[in-house]
């Protein structure tokens, strides 16, 4: 069974086509990324999938239930973390978790055990009786994640969870989410940071102006959008490079930077040269380049 099935989903506001005919599937246990600039339709898609907004047309099935017809069943299977913290400032960390847990009909004992487990993992168990308002932004986001995970959702939606956080917390949160995924949880993760999608996701959907412009593994996406690769290398002594499979971009002494359309042939040709290669590095194009290409032009 697929975790999420979306068919020709649309959400039109008066003048804006926030989501304009989106179709995709998310496999169970997959780490699925949504990548796009601000206002591309990522958050609206997430809001439809989490039953917070009704689609204008199209179909979305989450955890086997239709988001419009069986909203309540969908809600019992999912967790949501967004950049807007879902926490009450005047409640303590633990009170927050227990309040939201109660909405899922959880027993007090189960909630306490789960809260301790999650807060310990997130290094927040000692702060459990602190009011949320007294926590740092990073800690708040961790509590927010614990809140979403308390009822053990099958699918976790994270809408730009690391926005505005320091690098250490960001890293921690990424590792934590990755671990959840490795333990079998389906993750839907939106971001406008490309390296984030690249390192975390099994598959990435690039969304722009309400439409999915590309959907594949980060590796395939790169291949799809780049015809050339850039290679840096150093030789023992400077020689003239005159190969038909590459074009020299830069040359300082024995350092070279070239562009090639056929990496394996280039390496072969390089080996035939009468000098030793001291150092070689293929500079893979990042999703960043692809992204700028898609978001900017086409």
């Amino acid at each position: 069974m697929k975790a999420i099935e979306v068919r020709d989903l649309k959400k039109y506001y008066r003048e804006v086509k926030a989501v304009d005919g989106v179709t995709f599937d998310v496999e169970e246990g997959e780490f699925f990324g949504f990548l796009g600039p601000n206002g591309a339709g990522k958050s609206t898609t997430i809001r439809i999938l989490t039953t917070l907004t009704r689609p204008t047309s199209g179909k979305a099935v989450v955890a086997g239930y239709d988001v419009v017809k069986d909203g309540k069943q969908v809600r019992s299977k999912i967790g949501l973390v967004s950049d807007k913290l879902i926490l009450y400032d005047r409640l303590t960390v633990l009170e927050n978790l227990l309040f939201f847990g109660r909405l899922y009909n959880m027993e007090k004992k189960t909630m306490m055990e789960r809260a301790e487990e999650l807060l310990t993992m997130l290094d927040l168990w000692e702060r459990r009786n602190t009011q949320a308002s007294k926590l740092s932004t990073g800690m708040k986001q961790k509590v927010n994640i614990a809140r979403a995970l308390l009822p053990r959702p099958e699918i976790l939606f994270l809408d730009e969870p690391t926005i505005g956080l320091d690098p250490i917390t960001t890293r921690k949160i990424r590792d934590f989410v990755k671990r959840l995924n490795e333990e079998g949880m389906t993750i839907v993760y939106t971001t406008h940071l490309l390296h984030e999608a690249e390192t975390l996701c099994d598959r990435v959907a690039i969304i722009n102006k309400g439409k999915i412009v590309a959907l594949d593994t980060p590796r395939n996406l790169k291949r799809l959008f780049t015809e050339r690769e850039v290679v840096e290398f150093e030789l023992e002594r400077p020689v003239e490079i005159n190969l038909d499979c590459c074009r020299v971009l830069e040359n300082v002494g024995n350092y070279y930077k070239v562009e090639t359309t056929d990496l394996s042939r280039f390496v072969e040709e390089l080996g035939k040269l009468p000098v030793k290669v001291r150092y070689i590095k293929s500079e893979e194009p990042s999703l960043e380049d692809i992204f700028v290409k898609i978001a900017g032009g086409e």
Binding site: T51, L87, F100
Partner: peptide
Amino acid sequence: ELGTLDGIMVAPIS
């Protein structure tokens, strides 16, 4: 505005 309404709305309650 705080965003907490989403948290309640996303829970499986009527």
